[in-house]
Lab assay of single mutants.
Amino acid sequence: HSLRVHINGKDFEVHNADEHVIRALEELIRRGADADELKEFLERWKG
């Protein structure tokens, strides 16, 4: 899957995101994670 996440006016393109990554991202958003947390998660995932 390809996923586009809009954080703090920046678009993050997440390519080849598997279900696990997408679910983790949705969980963060549901918990009310702020932009920094989401960005950190995506950067860690992209490795």
Rank of each mutant, 00 (worst) to 15 (best):
K10S: 06
K39Q: 12
R23E: 07
H6D: 03
D34L: 08
H6L: 06
D36R: 08
G47M: 13
D36S: 10
I7G: 01
R31F: 09
D36F: 09
H20Q: 11
G9R: 01
I29T: 03
A33L: 07
H6M: 08
D34Y: 05
I22T: 04
A24N: 06
I22V: 09
G9H: 01
H1M: 06
R44W: 11
W45L: 06
L3S: 04
L42I: 13
S2A: 07
V5G: 01
D11W: 15
I7H: 02
L25R: 00
R23H: 10
N16E: 05
A35C: 05
R31K: 12
H20Y: 14
I22W: 06
I7N: 00
R4V: 15
R23M: 10
R31L: 11
D34G: 11
K39Y: 15
D11N: 09
H1W: 03
E43P: 01
D36V: 08
H15M: 07
E40L: 14
F41L: 06
A33S: 07
E19M: 11
H15S: 08
W45M: 04
H15Q: 07
G9T: 00
D18M: 05
H15I: 10
A35G: 07
G9V: 01
F41C: 03
L38W: 05
E13R: 03
I22Y: 07
E40Y: 11
K46D: 07
A17S: 05
G9N: 02
I29Y: 09
V21M: 12
I29M: 09
L38H: 00
R30I: 08
G32K: 05
H20R: 12
H6F: 07
E26S: 10
D11C: 13
L28H: 03
L28D: 00
H20N: 12
A17H: 04
V21N: 02
L3N: 06
L42E: 01
A17V: 14
A24T: 07
L28F: 09
E43W: 13
G47N: 12
E19K: 11
N8I: 01
H1L: 07
D18A: 11
L25E: 00
I22S: 02
K46P: 10
V5A: 03
N8C: 04
E19L: 13
G47H: 12
F12Q: 01
V14A: 02
N16I: 07
E37P: 01
I7S: 01
N16S: 08
W45E: 02
I29V: 08
L3A: 04
D36E: 11
R4G: 09
A33K: 05
G47F: 15
W45G: 02
V5Q: 01
F12C: 02
R31I: 08
L25A: 02
D11R: 08
R30T: 08
E40M: 12
I7P: 00
V21D: 04
H1Y: 02
A24D: 07
D18Y: 04
N16K: 04
G47A: 12
L3H: 09
A35Y: 15
L25V: 07
G32Q: 06
F41D: 00
D34A: 09
G32A: 05
F41N: 03
E37T: 08
D36L: 08
R23A: 07
K39F: 15
W45T: 03
L38F: 11
K10D: 04
H20V: 12
A35R: 04
G32H: 05
R30Y: 09
V21Q: 06
E40P: 02
R31N: 10
E19H: 11
R23G: 06
D11A: 11
E37H: 07
S2W: 14
E43V: 14
K10P: 00
L3G: 04
H20A: 12
R30A: 12
V5L: 11
W45A: 02
A24S: 07
D18T: 11
I7A: 02
G32C: 05
R4K: 15
L3M: 13
E27V: 12
K46T: 13
K46V: 15
S2M: 15
E13S: 05
N16G: 08
L42S: 02
V14D: 00
L42H: 03
N16M: 06
R31W: 10
K10R: 11
E13K: 03
L25G: 00
D18V: 04
S2R: 14
D11G: 05
V21F: 11
D36T: 09
D36C: 03
R31Q: 10
V21W: 04
D34Q: 11
E19N: 08
D18L: 05
V5E: 01
K39S: 13
E43Q: 14
G32S: 04
K10N: 05
K39D: 09
A24L: 10
H1E: 15
R31A: 10
E26N: 10
I7L: 07
G32R: 05
N8G: 09
E26T: 14
V14W: 03
E43S: 14
R44A: 10
E27A: 14
L3E: 05
V14N: 00
A24W: 09
L38K: 00
R4W: 07
A24G: 08
N16L: 06
V14I: 13
R44T: 13
G9L: 01
E43H: 13
A24K: 10
E40H: 09
H15W: 09
G47V: 12
S2H: 15
D11F: 13
R30H: 08
A17M: 09
K39C: 08
R4P: 05
E27G: 09
E43Y: 14
H20L: 12
H20E: 10
A17I: 10
F12N: 00
D18P: 15
E13A: 05
R31C: 03
E27R: 11
H1G: 15
K46I: 14
D11P: 09
R30N: 09
A35T: 12
E26C: 14
V21I: 11
D11H: 13
K39V: 14
E27T: 12
H6E: 06
A17G: 04
N8Q: 05
N16F: 10
R30S: 10
H20K: 13
F41Q: 04
R30M: 12
E13P: 02
H6V: 12
I22R: 04
E27W: 13
A24F: 07
L25K: 00
N16A: 07
V5M: 04
D34T: 13
E27L: 14
F12W: 07
H20F: 14
R31T: 08
L38V: 11
H15L: 08
I22P: 00
L3V: 15
H1T: 15
L28E: 04
E26M: 15
R4C: 14
D18I: 03
A35E: 11
V14K: 00
K46M: 14
V21C: 03
D18E: 10
F41Y: 08
E19I: 14
A35I: 15
E43R: 15
E19A: 11
W45S: 03
R30C: 06
V14R: 00
G32N: 07
A35M: 11
A24V: 08
A35V: 15
R44P: 03
I22K: 05
E19V: 12
I29L: 12
A35N: 06
K10H: 07
H6Q: 09
K39L: 15
H15P: 05
R4I: 15
E40N: 11
E13I: 14
H20G: 10
E26W: 15
A35K: 04
E43A: 15
R23F: 13
D36W: 12
D34K: 07
L3R: 02
L38D: 00
E37K: 09
E40V: 13
G32W: 03
S2Y: 14
E13V: 14
G47I: 13
K10T: 09
H6W: 07
G47Y: 13
S2N: 15
H1P: 13
I22F: 08
R4E: 12
E19Y: 13
K10W: 05
L38G: 00
I7V: 07
F12V: 06
N8V: 01
H6R: 14
L42W: 13
A33H: 05
E27M: 15
K39I: 15
R30F: 12
N16R: 05
E13D: 05
K46Q: 12
D11M: 15
V14G: 00
L42T: 04
E26L: 15
H15R: 09
H6P: 01
G47Q: 13
E19W: 12
V14Q: 00
L3T: 10
E26R: 14
W45H: 05
E43L: 15
V14P: 00
R44E: 05
E19S: 09
H1Q: 14
D11L: 15
S2T: 15
H1I: 14
I29D: 01
L28N: 01
D18C: 05
R4Q: 14
L25N: 00
K46W: 14
L42Y: 15
R4T: 15
V21G: 02
D34R: 06
E40A: 11
G9Y: 01
L28T: 01
A24C: 04
R31Y: 09
A33N: 03
D34V: 05
A33V: 08
R30V: 08
H20I: 10
D11K: 09
R44L: 12
H20D: 10
N16Y: 07
W45R: 03
E40G: 11
E27F: 13
A33I: 05
G9Q: 01
K46C: 04
H15D: 06
E26G: 06
E37A: 12
K46A: 14
S2C: 06
G32F: 04
R23Y: 12
R30Q: 08
D34E: 12
R44D: 06
E26I: 15
L28W: 10
K10G: 02
S2I: 15
N16P: 03
S2G: 12
E37C: 05
V21H: 03
F12S: 00
N8A: 07
I29N: 02
G9S: 01
G32D: 04
G9F: 01
W45K: 02
A17F: 03
L38Q: 01
F41A: 09
R4S: 15
G47K: 06
F41R: 02
F41K: 02
D11T: 15
A35Q: 06
H1C: 15
V14C: 02
A24I: 09
S2K: 13
W45Y: 12
V5N: 00
D18N: 10
H1R: 14
L42F: 12
A33Q: 03
